[in-house]
């Protein structure tokens, strides 16, 4: 084992772990997924041109491990268990929309300015992560399968046993919740 590669793995480990934890919401399962990823990386004999291509390769292994974990544990993510997440939906809708479905004056979406400038700040990512964490567990799971693992709706349906239309509703709830949290806690404040 190349000592450079070993130290690089060590440096990336906390990031991989955070990424896995956020999605699995289970420290033990996240730890396992990262361990297996590192093991696969250590036994692999690929050569990489650059540090970034090595990192990309590691992340793709981790993504597969996360999908495997989800596959093995989340057959029970049925429509009825998603209903547990619905409690806050009406509250959010009332805060955002009036009875005719138009934006409440206080909730009308604003301009977010230059997102790249936000992406450059560590503080933005802390808020982003906190907002993801605030989403109901199953809603967050479906959202991250779509956006972080890059699965299509049909694949998510297959893995979780929910219907396409249910999946679209859940993804919409996730995006609505996430953008509202970001607007309140970052873009409307001193962040930008």
């Amino acid at each position: 084992m190349d000592p450079d590669r070993q130290s690089e793995l060590n440096a990336l480990r906390p990031d991989l772990l955070r990424f896995a934890r956020l999605q699995l919401r289970d420290a033990g399962a996240a730890e396992d997924a990262v361990q297996e990823t590192l093991l696969a990386a250590l036994t692999g004999s690929h050569r990489f041109e650059s540090r970034s291509s090595y990192k990309t390769w590691l992340i793709s292994i981790l993504r597969n491990k996360i999908v495997d974990t989800i596959r093995s544990q989340s057959r029970e993510l049925s429509a009825s268990s998603l209903a547990d997440d619905d409690a806050g939906d009406d509250l959010l809708d009332d805060a955002l929309f009036d009875r005719r479905g138009h934006w409440q004056a206080s909730a009308r979406p604003g301009r977010w300015g230059d997102p790249e400038a936000s992406f450059e700040q560590q503080q933005f990512w802390n808020v982003f992560e906190a907002c993801l964490d605030r989403l109901p567990a199953k809603t967050a799971r479906v959202f991250m399968m779509r956006e972080f693992l890059g699965l299509e709706t049909e694949e998510i349906c297959k893995e979780t046993g929910i219907s396409s239309s249910n999946c679209w509703v859940v993804l919409h709830r996730a995006r609505l919740g996430l953008r509202t949290c970001l607007e309140t806690n970052w873009f409307a404040g001193a962040g930008t």
Partner: peptide, 26 residues
């Protein structure tokens, strides 16, 4: 105007997720 902004926000969300998902934003 509100929904026009919302649509841009959706694009920013996706870009943020892409960045985060490649561990670029940590």
């Amino acid at each position: 105007a509100g929904c026009n902004n919302y649509r841009r926000q959706m694009a920013v969300l996706r870009a943020a997720c892409r960045r985060f998902g490649s561990l670029g934003g940590q």
